[in-house]
Amino acid sequence: MLEQIKGKLIVSCQALEYEPLYGSNLMARMALAAFQGGAAGIRANTYDDIVEIKATVNLPVIGIVKRDYKDSSIYITPTIKEVREIEAAGAEIVALDCTLRKRPNGEKLEDLIKAIRKEFPKLLIMADISTVEEGINAYRLGVNLISTTLSGYTEYTLSKEGPDIELVKELVSKVSIPVIAEGKIDTPEQARLCLEAGAHAIVVGGAITRPKQITERFIKVINL
């Protein structure tokens, strides 16, 4: 499966409750459009969306469950509870926040990864990180892939704009597992630069599947 996505585009099909395209049926249609356009994989949020997407397209799915916990800012697959939902839905890869921030219930990342390995030995683990240090830590804990998803979104990387190509380059030089470029990739040219930096594959979401965000980018430039 890692060979299947190598050098290819993965499309993130997500919509939260307050967004116009919220709904598993709509996300499945979005995934179908991505599949017809040539996508090699899908990233999806929630059990229902993953199930609907898997029934619609024959592509590998990176599954997440976004859930808020009062004692932690981590919300991308925070605990084993969310991992179980993702596995039950049929995703081949589970992506989870592997930043060094405090986790829900005071849990440790290493314990979560061990629990996933024990309960779901065939499930691949993708680490969503925001810094080189976090990527190397996740690599040492035994994940299968690293993604730059959270660069520009953690409180200590908020100043970063656009795709973090330097982070991709550094991680590629320091780990021996696939590095996925994700986060703030708005154009095909930026995606190409990420591949040239050594990314195993590219994940693009908002620039393809969130028309509200796309419209806002146009409006911002027009208003200048």
Rank of each mutant, 00 (worst) to 15 (best):
L145D: 00
E133P: 00
D97E: 00
A95C: 13
P78N: 08
I208Y: 00
A127D: 12
T46D: 07
A55Q: 15
V175Y: 10
E110M: 05
D97H: 00
I136N: 08
I222N: 00
L145E: 01
T149S: 06
L2E: 13
S176W: 01
V172D: 04
C194Y: 11
I219M: 12
N45W: 00
S130D: 01
Q190I: 09
G206V: 01
T148D: 02
Q14G: 02
A115Y: 00
T148W: 05
E182H: 06
I74R: 07
L2Q: 14
V172C: 10
A89P: 03
E119D: 13
I185A: 13
V143T: 10
N25A: 12
V172P: 11
L32I: 00
K66R: 06
G38I: 08
G162I: 06
E92F: 08
P60E: 09
A91K: 13
L109K: 00
N223S: 14
T148Q: 02
L100I: 08
L171W: 06
E92S: 10
Q4A: 14
D186H: 01
T209L: 00
L224G: 13
P78I: 14
P20V: 04
V83H: 06
G206C: 03
L145Q: 00
K6G: 09
T77F: 04
Y22E: 02
G205Y: 02
A15K: 03
A127F: 08
K174Q: 15
Q14A: 11
I222M: 14
A40L: 04
A88W: 03
I62W: 04
T77C: 13
G183C: 06
Y22H: 11
T79L: 14
L96S: 04
V94E: 12
A15L: 09
E170A: 01
T99L: 03
L112N: 04
R29S: 11
E82R: 07
I113H: 08
T187K: 05
Y47I: 02
L100T: 06
L16S: 07
Y153R: 06
T157P: 01
K102I: 07
R84K: 12
D111W: 05
P60F: 15
V57I: 08
Y69P: 07
N58K: 14
E3M: 11
L171E: 12
T209Y: 02
V65H: 10
E134G: 07
